[in-house]
């Protein structure tokens, strides 16, 4: 499972741009600070490479290694 922490995300969209599988999409979802938080809409395409969590400058992303049951 992919979790994006709304309270930490600053909406830079590096995850949206650099995920090799285009898992994230910018949506209209706003957090308390009015930031557009990306949503992992294509989660089934994720290959769990961990790049998004390594690149997120605000430590907002967690990609679970295990598949969901």
């Amino acid at each position: 499972m992919i979790t994006v922490n709304e309270n930490l995300c600053k909406g830079c969209n590096l995850c949206t741009e650099f995920c090799p599988r285009q898992v994230y999409e910018q949506t209209d979802k706003l957090n308390k600070k009015g930031v557009h938080v990306p949503v992992p809409v294509n989660e089934e395409k994720c290959k769990k490479c961990g790049l998004c969590a390594l690149m997120c400058p605000d430590q907002a992303i967690k990609v679970d290694e295990k598949d969901e049951e």
């Binding site: 309270n7 930490l8 600053k10 909406g11 830079c12 969209n13 590096l14 930031v35 969590a53 390594l54 690149m55 997120c56 400058p57 605000d58 430590q59």
Partner: peptide, 17 residues
């Protein structure tokens, strides 16, 4: 947290790496 860094600043990536 969150850090005082601007959105998308490279400091956060340097920290992770």
């Amino acid at each position: 947290l969150p850090t005082i860094f601007c959105a998308g600043c490279g400091n956060g990536i340097a920290m992770n790496t």
